[in-house]
Design a protein around this nucleic acid. Structure first.
Lengths: 117, 117
DNA sequence: TTTAAGTACCTCGCCTTCCTATGCTGAAAT
DNA sequence: ATTTCAGCATAGGAAGGCGAGGTACTTAAA
């Protein structure tokens, strides 16, 4: 992953955004939108750049679906952030989707390089 | 990938269909739509099920973009198939997209399990 | 001090891409 | 005779990502 050029992933993220977010929230215990954008970019070494127009609606949806629980927190300086936590059903879904992700990449790689015959 | 359940890949294929097709055509030397559907399903052990409504337009697009070259062939019994081959620019694109696919999966896995700090 | 840049959230409308459904032709099987 | 398979095609709708725009406050730079 030497010369990773960000920005040229036509639609690869599609359908995976929610898992990425769920996984992040779950692992970080509690986090908020803006931080997730930065964290995803950082962890992926600049490759994955989630856009605000993507993740805020996605976070909304996760919460509406009951997979996360959001909560406004006020900072000392008056700024506010919406912190999220993964719910129980969110964790179930996360495990499920992580398994699907595994299967999916395995399947694609099998198409690229079929094993035996 | 034991209990792979086909049919539940919301949008995972999205953005990857063209690479899958390009890769298949390239490797098989020459092939046609219907066969590709079957081959993808076979190689992925039933996990990836490309729909006709997906691949025929996709094949059309690949050809329009000059990445493949199509040709009608008539069978002895009068049936016709459209066989495709990868063009030179198609191979360039294929190599490029395979690299992107690698980077992408690596990046996603890094988000799931970040390395050191 | 004005300006720029960063933090933090939101939303609308477009675009792309996929899937469903449907249709067609002819061959093979039952 | 009817179903199933092979083989291609398209139109309509849904979903998700993204660009562009907006709000509001803070911090750094000029």
């Amino acid at each position: 992953m030497e010369n990773m050029q960000a920005g040229y992933l036509p639609d690869l993220l599609r359908g995976n955004t929610d898992i990425l977010l769920l996984s992040l929230i779950d692992e970080m215990g509690s986090t908020y939108g803006y931080q997730m954008i930065k964290e995803i970019e950082k962890r992926s070494r600049g490759f994955l750049q989630c856009k605000e127009g993507t993740i805020y609606p996605a976070l909304r949806k996760l919460e509406n679906d009951g997979l996360t629980k959001g909560e406004w927190r006020e900072l000392p300086n008056g700024q506010r952030r919406r912190y999220y936590q993964v719910t129980t059903s969110g964790q179930t879904m996360l495990a499920k989707k992580l398994a699907i992700w595994q299967d999916f990449t395995t399947a694609v790689n099998l198409v690229f390089k079929p094993v035996n015959t």
